[in-house]
Simulated assay, not measured.
Amino acid sequence: MNNSRKLNNFKGHKLRFLRNLRGETLESLDKKSNVRSQKISRIELNECVPSFDEIRSLSNALQVSPLFLLNDDQVPTTGGAIFYRKLQRTPKKDFERAELKTRIFALLDQKLSEKLHLSYQDYISFANHDEIFNMLDDEYIENMALCVRSQFKLGDGPISNMTLLIERLGIRVLFADFSNEHIDALTVKINDHFYIAVNSKNISSVRMRFNLAHELGHVLLHSYYSEQEVKKSSVRKVIEAEANYFAGALLMPVKGLALDMIAVNMSYIKKLKKHWKASIQAIVYRGEQINLITSQQALFLRQTIARNSWRKKEPYDDEIPIEYPSFLKSALRYKGDNQLPQKIQEEVGIHDDFFDGLSFSDLNLGKGSLMLLNSRR
């Protein structure tokens, strides 16, 4: 192809998407690509079409194949409110980048799902379908958690695999390295399909289980609220508390925990952690919440947690295994086409090392494994 030839099917909005995803300014991309920042701005606005040399330079700088910028694949769009489980002072650009990572995952997931004839669950009958925010009482949230347990006949005991439970609800789960974005988890609807993405970098399994349950709470309790409603600080504070309550109720139902909590000393609470696969802090909070632990006992237990520096890393954190997503893995095994993810990746124009912390490498898909889900590294 003549380097001076203009390529009329170049997608300017995809260039802007990639630039934002990579956290590049116009000026920083200028330095990396040798394409002037003013020209990049005009390209993104579709005011001019780049030459092939410029496309190649921009693609190299952004670590994608030129195909990504030239093909007809559209990056899926979000719809409705987005829920973030984040640090208090996380910059807006950070959680926006986490959203962009999830949209890239959705692009690959939806192409793969189409090839494998996989379905999504976009309507959960027992979910709260109210569109106007209204504070939910504890009984309602407890009953919502029981509805989930009832649907899958989970009884009153521990949930063996929280990730699998969410996947069985038809929700796609993404494990990713969101440490740079300071995000624990997010829930978003992309092309009318629910996605829950959780940080898997240096996070214990019990914390990830709670984060997953928390995000499922948003899907079931708040997903019909408008984006404008959820953005209100007063509303967000309440729905975060409700999602936390749901997570505790789902992971540790009243009857089951009451039968098991025959003592409230720290030695016994640690044993409960291994059984329920919930953090010591979550067990103490839930026990006090449902009056199995008095306020005075809870205070003493929290003081013990602080004294032992267990707020970030608790006993047995390394012994409880992480529950990796398995839905796509199982579908690929059933289909028997181990090269399909790589083919889709090549069609989209994404290199193997595009993602940071997202991989399919544990699927043993052969050379050029698709970088989708978190590997066991």
Rank of each mutant, 00 (worst) to 15 (best):
D352Q: 07
L165R: 02
I43P: 04
Q74T: 09
G80Q: 04
L332W: 06
K111P: 14
L136S: 09
E114L: 08
C48H: 14
N3V: 15
I183T: 06
V35I: 04
E215A: 10
S37I: 10
G357H: 09
N374P: 14
K231Y: 13
L372A: 02
D184V: 07
L292Q: 04
L18G: 05
L220D: 10
V64M: 12
Y195P: 05
L7T: 07
K329T: 08
K274H: 10
L15Q: 05
E240S: 06
E54V: 03
D353Q: 05
V64I: 05
K14E: 08
I124A: 00
F178Y: 15
D177H: 03
P76W: 06
D30Y: 08
L292Y: 14
S361N: 05
R42M: 09
P341S: 08
L15W: 12
K270H: 14
I344L: 02
F300A: 06
L18P: 01
L221W: 01
N2R: 03
H182A: 06
K335T: 12
L212I: 06
L251S: 12
S150F: 15
I190W: 06
Q110S: 07
K11W: 13
N8K: 12
S326I: 13
V35Q: 08
L116W: 11
I239S: 01
N308G: 07
A249D: 06
T294G: 08
Q228T: 14
A241I: 15
R377P: 14
Q345M: 09
R209N: 02
Q297Y: 14
A278M: 06
L250A: 09
R36T: 07
I283G: 08
M266N: 11
P91L: 14
D30C: 11
F152K: 00
K189S: 09
G366E: 15
L259Q: 09
G12E: 04
L107V: 05
G23Q: 02
F178N: 03
E167C: 03
A249T: 10
